Amino acid sequence: MIIEIRKYTQDDHSVWDKFLLNAQQASFLFHRNFMDYHSDRFQDFSLMIYEDDELVAVLPANKIDDEVFSHLGLTYGGIIINGDSEITNMEKIIDAVANFLKQKDIKALYIKNLPQFYYNDGIDILEIPLTNKNAEVYRTDKVLAIDYSKPFAIHKTKLKNYRKNHAKGFVIQETDDFSLFWNMVLVPRLKEKHKATPVHNLEEITLLRSRFPNHVRQFNIYLNDDILAGITIFDKGPIVKSQYGATTNKGEKERALEYLFLHLIYKYKGSEKNFFSMGTVTENNELGYNKGLLKQKEELGCEVYSQDFYKLEL
């Protein structure tokens, strides 16, 4: 078995995307039309791993100085293998990647692993081989998700409010126009509450919607024609993720965002999804996470899963 590492180039665009059609843990986030929308911000250093001239794995990545990272423009990454690859080959793949990077004078590889529930059967294919290579887990995030394969518990108060609010006359609509939610809800709310801005600006999310209309979706909730809240969904096949969720001050009083979340949780439960992810609760404080946000997401039926971040010194 001969393993060869090749650095991705634009000429590999179609080969890369075709590989993802049969890849384990595949997501539209790894397609080049998603990764390359912000190519001006990152020096791409994605790798393609061949075994006896057959593409068996890819590593979406970027380079900063003499270090390589699981692509920092993505929520997660790691080494994505094809559907037929043996997990036992992973240590050999990591050895080959490490040797390739050493030859390029790279000092360290940072891998932003997938959350536990993204792996088939919950088996983390990177944990053991990276541990055997003495990689350091320098960070672990809490990721919240609902497992649709088993009963999930929504807090009784949230269920009570959900049923009561049926009578308010909320209107929920899916739209391909993100401007109302971005301009009237998301951007002002993030600025007011967190002095922050969305990762994607309006132009970028509109571009991604045009490239991935079945995967990037926007749901808004209204009362008397006033927008109260919205949720941006990233549909990744078996897993659906709420990428953004925000509400106006009026919407907060009406519990509109909570109502919309429960509406979507039930909607996707009936559409053969495996998980509904609500993302992380990471925060820069003593705990490392937002305690209140964790409680809110757990009360909406989520369980806590881990996402590990590794550093491999080369």
Score class of each variant (00 low, 15 high):
D66K: 15
M90D: 14
K241D: 11
R163S: 08
F275K: 06
H263S: 14
R255F: 09
D66C: 14
I111G: 03
L257G: 10
F19R: 02
P238Y: 03
L228F: 06
Y268H: 03
E67C: 12
A98Q: 09
E254L: 09
L20P: 10
K164F: 10
Q218F: 08
D226E: 14
T248L: 00
L29F: 12
L101Y: 10
Q218K: 03
K102A: 05
G251C: 00
I80S: 06
A167N: 05
E174H: 09
L114H: 14
F219V: 03
D65H: 04
D52M: 07
G73K: 01
K236M: 10
T282R: 02
K156R: 15
R32I: 09
L294M: 11
K18L: 02
L130W: 04
H194E: 08
I49T: 13
N99C: 05
E286C: 01
V199A: 09
T157M: 09
D308C: 12
I125F: 08
W16L: 08
S210A: 09
D12G: 13
K168N: 13
I146C: 01
F19E: 02
K112A: 05
G251P: 11
F212H: 06
P198T: 02
D52E: 11
T248M: 00
E203P: 12
T232P: 09
S271Q: 13
Y244F: 10
I111Y: 04
N33V: 09
I205S: 13
F100D: 14
I93G: 06
E272G: 02
L257I: 14
E192D: 15
N22H: 02
H263K: 15
F19Y: 04
E127L: 13
D121H: 04
I128N: 09
I81N: 05
W16N: 07
D225Y: 06
I93V: 13
I64Q: 15
I106F: 15
L109T: 13
G251M: 01
R209V: 05
F117R: 10
V185Y: 09
D52P: 14
L287N: 15
S271T: 13
S27Q: 09
A108T: 15
V187W: 08
G83Y: 01
T75M: 00
E254V: 12
H215Q: 13
Y259S: 02
D147G: 08
S46L: 01
I123L: 08
P238C: 01
E283V: 06
E54R: 12
E258L: 12
K236D: 12
H166V: 13
V137K: 13
F309T: 10
A229W: 01
E272K: 04
S39V: 15
M35D: 06
I205L: 02
P151T: 15
S27H: 07
L55H: 03
T248R: 01
F45A: 12
K269I: 00
